[in-house]
């Protein structure tokens, strides 16, 4: 039982280090999907907005972690 929970924890840690950062990334992606499905963005803006959002969230998480 202990070994299984250790393996599950390790698996979870592969994807999530800063929980708020991981949730924000998923929200940005979900928001992107909603916008693409319902609004009419120029095609070239969609990838750029995704990349800029993830980059901002990454830098924000790094800045927060470096202050603690």
């Amino acid at each position: 039982m202990n070994s299984i929970s250790t393996i599950l924890n390790k698996l979870f840690a592969l994807f999530v280090d800063d929980g708020a950062f991981a949730v924000s990334v998923l929200f940005w992606l979900a928001g992107g999907w909603l916008c693409i499905a319902t609004m009419h963005f120029p095609a070239s803006a969609e990838p750029l907005l995704l990349f800029l959002g993830f980059s901002y969230l990454l830098n924000d998480s790094v800045r927060r972690a470096s202050r603690t």
Binding site: L14, F15, A22, L26, F54, A65, S66
Partner: peptide, 23 residues
Amino acid sequence: GVLLLLFGLRWLREAMLRAAKAV
């Protein structure tokens, strides 16, 4: 894509913190 995004950004975050000597 979603898993690689979370995995890659987590990897990059850790590498940035190390390179910046924050960890």
